[in-house]
Design a protein around this nucleic acid. Structure first.
Length: 600
RNA sequence: GGGGCUGUAGCUCAGCACGGUUAGAGCGCCUGCCUGUCACGCAGGAGGCCGCGGGUUCAAGUCCCGUCAGCCCCGCCA
């Protein structure tokens, strides 16, 4: 490299006029006027117009003539004030330019597969991922990653100041039976044995509490071999935290301070704390989901008691088979086609249908207020009760009802609620609405496995007052768990953990984990609990999700440098890929590996 | 495992319902001209396995079946 960079483009301003500088970067655009060639040079800090004039040095001018888009060059020259009227107000360096006296072409470039000088969000994601480095090289391409870097630093800054210790935990660890599918890593030294990549550092951080660390955090990669979504990657990053000698409120308060600090420092947004707290039961009752989006109202209402009084068979039969009738009110009327589409939307989520009633507050008579194929099944008193239950302050409204089993009604209506709010423009995009969900049930019944399973994970502490019901009425037992939800997306979840071996063993027993299995899978934890484990609890955040929401992105792939596709491939590297047979043999992955080993 | 959308030039897309000459557009690319442009301009040019395989047909980018890939969703999972 003959011409060594003297500064970044972003550092340049009028004060540099008449000074000689060397800048290095990529050619964004070039405008060849024959006798004069303009090149817009880009580095990660900005854009600068470089001028090659024929009169100054014909040789340099010829070299500039061969320069193409995305060539990597260093240019030496004097900064000059642009001639009057030639300024470009669109860029920060628009009132100056670099008059090239020397240029070094450090590398050529093929023509990029997509233009790097304009908005590339229209380019298909597959191509962007294959050439991720080109996407990142564009003017704003690094923005999400600069932001992410800042988030990480701010989190560390805050937690360090609070006395937290960042400690790394292993990636090659032990498979655990509960939770998601594990990614397995075959052991070369122990034929037939496997490491698992961690779904989270859960057990390690608990053991760190036993070790007296007191406050731990880690920004850590986690791995789960499940199907992907816009907000789910097989490897993702958690902000993992754990604290000793704490109750729920201590963790929640620490988190609120952290989140408030983070939003203030990185987005300049002052959040109102404490965040609202909903019980699991309330969330399900009012929103149909344990991750409610509370940026808008439109609460769900149980109208089973009204439905019971109607002659509408669909409602009656749902109630007779133990279901419920639940509904919501949208502040608008809908066309027949829109109603058909909404019905289809509901059916795709599992509803048998979607009942609706159009409501016009200012109609001439009571009867004319109500319009629907099903309104004939309703007595006047039933309609009056609807008016009462739903606050009918809107001029026009439409009631939607789902009659089904409770969980289906809740699922369908919660999705419908989001869908309608989005379409009706009820959601203000710039709002950040946090809400805590607490008082989760400790267990949920799993029909397939015919046993209770942990709603959170098996190490979650039951509410003290419910411990006595563990064996007699597991459904009644609530947990010391808490989820943090932002704009309808779960961004974090945690709990106070069990810190006594006896209680942990009781839970395992309830989960139909035999003592032998418990010893084999979690023996190290049980042993640790016996050596003076302090009360402790913590939380883990989906950091990718949080950053996605902070940046208003629709997918966590936008905030991950090299993400996987929905089919879990890396389009850049081509992973997963086949490996040499030798590698497979060495890992004892083929049938008959034991024999092969004996022979060798 | 299931449902939906998409796949045509380097990129973004039209053409497909109703099969029929040589498959188009914009941007980009190449060559030439041009000393003040900044999405420079002007003139000329190159560039296509219409995702892949099979079928129907005199004839398929267009119709049918299968398959692959990307995205969104359900299940699963956080």
């Amino acid at each position: 490299m003959r011409l060594k960079r003297s500064l970044y483009i972003g550092e340049l301003n009028k004060n540099f006029i008449d000074r000689e500088v060397i800048v290095s970067g990529w050619v964004l655009r070039r405008r060849d006027h024959g006798g004069v060639i303009f090149i817009d040079l880009r580095d990660k800090t900005g854009l600068l117009q470089v001028v090659f004039e024929e009169g100054i040095d014909p040789q340099i001018h010829d070299l500039a003539d061969s320069i193409r888009i995305e060539y990597v060059i260093s240019v030496k020259g004097k900064i000059r004030k642009r001639p009057p009227g030639m300024e470009n107000p669109k860029i920060p360096t628009g009132d100056i330019e670099l008059v090239a006296s020397d240029v070094e072409i450090l590398n050529t470039s093929k023509t990029p597969p997509f233009p790097l000088d304009e908005d590339i969000s229209e380019v298909s994601e597959a191509i962007r991922l294959k050439y991720r480095y080109l996407e990142m090289r564009t003017l704003d391409g690094l923005k999400p990653f600069v932001f992410r870097h800042k988030v990480n630093q701010t989190i560390r800054e805050f937690l360090n100041s609070q006395g937290f210790l960042e400690i790394e935990t292993p990636y090659l660890t032990k498979s655990t039976p509960e939770g998601a599918r594990d990614y397995l890593v075959p052991s070369r030294l122990y034929p037939g044995k496997f490491y698992a990549l961690p779904q989270s550092p859960q057990l390690f951080k608990q053991i760190l509490m036993v070790a007296g660390v007191d406050k731990y955090y880690q920004i850590v990669r986690c791995f789960r071999d499940e199907d992907l979504r816009a907000d789910r990657q097989p490897e993702f990053t958690q902000l993992d935290m754990e604290m000793s000698f704490v109750e729920e409120k201590d963790v929640m308060q620490m988190v609120e301070e952290l989140i408030a600090y983070l939003f203030e420092k990185t987005l300049g947004i002052t959040l109102r704390t404490p965040f609202p707290v909903f019980s699991y039961e309330t969330a399900l009752r009012d929103y149909g989901t344990d991750r409610p989006d509370i940026r808008f109202d439109m609460k769900l209402k149980d109208i089973s008691s009204i439905a019971k009084e109607t002659s509408f068979k669909v409602f009656r039969s749902a109630l007779d088979s133990g279901g419920i009738v639940k509904g919501l009110k949208a502040p608008s009327h809908f066309s027949r086609k829109e109603l058909d589409d909404l019905t289809k939307f509901a059916q795709e989520l599992g509803a048998k249908g979607l009942a609706w009633i159009k409501y016009t507050k200012t109609a001439a008579s009571f009867e004319e207020k109500w319009s629907s194929p099903i309104v004939k099944f309703f007595e006047k008193s039933a309609l009056e009760k609807l008016e009462e239950i739903f606050d009918t302050s809107d001029e026009k409204a439409t009631f939607f009802f789902v009659a089904d089993k409770e969980d289906i009604a809740n699922l369908v209506l919660s999705e419908l609620r989001k869908h309608l709010a989005q379409n009706l423009g009820l959601i203000s995009e710039k709002t950040y609405s946090f809400v805590w969900i607490v008082d989760f049930p400790l267990f949920e019944w799993d029909d397939e496995e015919d046993r209770w399973i942990s709603m959170h994970h098996p190490f979650t502490h039951p509410k003290e007052e419910d411990i006595e019901f563990l064996e007699t009425d597991p459904a009644k037992v609530k947990s010391k768990a808490y989820d943090l939800v932002l704009n309808g997306i779960e961004i974090g979840g945690g709990s106070i953990r069990i810190h006594r071996r006896e209680l942990q063993e009781r839970i395992f027993k309830l989960l139909k984990i035999t003592p032998e299995e418990a010893e084999e899978k979690f023996g190290f934890l049980l042993t640790a609990l016996e050596y003076g484990a302090p009360p402790h609890g913590g939380i883990a955040f989906g950091l990718d999700r949080l950053i996605m929401l902070m940046l208003g992105k629709k997918s966590i792939r936008e905030v991950i440098a090299f993400p996987k596709t929905q089919r879990a491939q890396c389009l850049l590297t081509g992973a997963p890929a086949e490996v040499k047979i030798e590698q497979i043999l060495e890992l004892h992955l083929l049938p008959g590996w034991e024999k092969k080993k004996e022979k060798s």
